[in-house]
Amino acid sequence: MKIEVKKNIMATNSSVAAGNRQRLAEHGVCMLNLMASPGAGKTSVIMKAIEGTRDRLKLAVIEGDIASEIDSLAIEAMDIPAIQINTGGSCHLTAAMVSTALDHLDLDSLDLIIIENVGNLVCPAEFDLGESTRMVIASVAEGHDKPYKYPMIFREVDAILVNKIDLLAHCDFDLAQFHQVVQGLNPAAPVIELSCRDSYGTDEWCQWLEATAIGSRLDLTS
């Protein structure tokens, strides 16, 4: 016997994500889902954001890794609340994992939560976590061809960060070509060039982040 099902396979994740989004809206908290390949500099970029905005924004970080607490310990050492999620092999965070992490944060005391997703350019793009903003980091050391190879994630984010820009002189990274490709994929997304080593571009990164957090709070509470 044939049974018509017509059910969205992602429905469970989507409904938990919608719950997360609602919960954050009630508390006026912006949540940024930061995605990148392993080693692109996600944690360093977050640390720059903390240094540059901590006077004006109350932040917390959710760290997603397959194993270890290395990243959350680094964030806690800066006196910022950090919740470590170990996915135990899974290549992405899910809305349910983030929901559990939110239980451990005092949402009333926060403006912005940054989620450092598991290092991966494929799977995280498919899973809504309930975030208000999505961002991808590409790094100069990875090569300028990443958007050709992983177009979906570059298409679906609100902003693109190019990290390790200080390595341009040492790598065959064609910055003009990178800009051209991402412009074709996602014309609306700003592209921010950054170096966490010499702090080039960190002002622009922090200003964008602050504007996003405040803008999102206005949207959420309006």
């Binding site: 049974i3 017509k6 396979i9």
Partner: peptide, 8 residues
């Protein structure tokens, strides 16, 4: 991404 039908 959805389940269209099942045969049982």
């Amino acid at each position: 991404l959805f389940i269209e039908s099942i045969d049982v």
